[in-house]
Simulated scan of single mutants.
Amino acid sequence: MSIETDIKQATPFRTPYHRVMVNLIYTSNWMADSQMRLLKPFGLTLQQYNVLRILRGQSPNPVKVSDITERMLDKMSNASRLVDKLVAKKLVLRTECPSDRRAVDVVVTDKGLALLTQLDVHQAELDADYQSKLTEEEAVYLSQLLDKLRA
C-alpha cells in the first residue's frame, strides 16, 4: 500500500523528498506501534526496553547513566528516570561508581536478562514479518540509504 493511500492523501506531494520524509515518519510510527504492542504485556515502554538492551550489550560490566543517555535511540528520554523505573521492577541495579562518586553505575539483573530472552522470541516473530516483506539485500540497502540520509 502506498503512503498516499495509508494517509488518505488525494493530492501529490510537492517533491519526492517531501514524500520520503512523510513516509519515514509514518513508517517509524507504525514500527514503534508494533514494538509498543509487543512490550505492553510485559509492562515495558520502548525507552525502558532500549535501556535494557543497552545494558545487556555491556553485561556484566556496569554502564554509567550518562553513557546510557548517549546511546539511547530516543534522545529526549530521561535515562535516570527510566533507570529508576527499571530498578523498581528489579530489572536493573543501580550502584555508586567507585571511581566517581557523582556518577551512577547500572547493571542488568538476572530477572532483566530473563525478560529480554523472553522478548527476543517475540521480536523474532516481528522480524519474520519484516522478512516476508523485504529481502535481506533490500534491508541492507534500506539501512544504507537511511545512514546516507543522516550523514
Score class of each variant (00 low, 15 high):
Lys111Asn: 06
Pro98Trp: 08
Leu126Val: 04
Arg102Asp: 10
Leu113Gln: 10
Val121Trp: 05
Ala124Arg: 04
Gly112Tyr: 15
Arg102Met: 13
Gln123Pro: 00
Leu119Ile: 13
Asp120Asn: 07
Val121Cys: 00
Ala128His: 06
Leu119Asn: 00
Glu125Tyr: 10
Gln123Val: 08
Ser99His: 09
His122Pro: 01
Val107Leu: 13
Leu119Phe: 08
Leu115Cys: 07
Glu125Trp: 11
Asp120His: 09
Asp110Val: 12
Leu113Pro: 10
Ala103Leu: 10
Val106Cys: 08
Asp100Phe: 11
Glu125Leu: 12
Ala124Met: 04
Asp127Phe: 14
Leu115Gly: 02
Leu115His: 07
Gln123Gly: 03
Ala124Lys: 02
Asp127Pro: 01
Arg102Lys: 11
Ala128Thr: 09
Asp105Trp: 14
Ala128Glu: 05
Arg102Thr: 15
Val108Phe: 11
Gln123Asn: 01
Asp110Leu: 07
Ala114Pro: 00
Thr109Arg: 03
Val107Thr: 15
Val121Phe: 08
Val107Glu: 10
Ser99Leu: 12
Val106Asn: 02
Val104Phe: 13
Asp105Phe: 15
Ala103Arg: 09
Ala103Asp: 12
Leu116Arg: 03
Val108Ile: 15
Glu125Gln: 02
Leu126Ile: 12
Asp127His: 06
His122Cys: 03
Val108Met: 02
Glu125Asp: 01
Leu116Ile: 15
Ser99Ala: 09
Asp105Tyr: 15
Asp127Trp: 07
Ser99Cys: 04
Leu115Lys: 04
Val107Ile: 15
Val108Asn: 01
Val106Glu: 01
Val121Gly: 00
Ala114Trp: 06
Gln123Lys: 01
Asp105Val: 13
Asp127Lys: 00
Asp100Val: 13
Asp120Thr: 11
Val107Gln: 08
Thr117Arg: 05
Val106Trp: 14
Val106Thr: 10
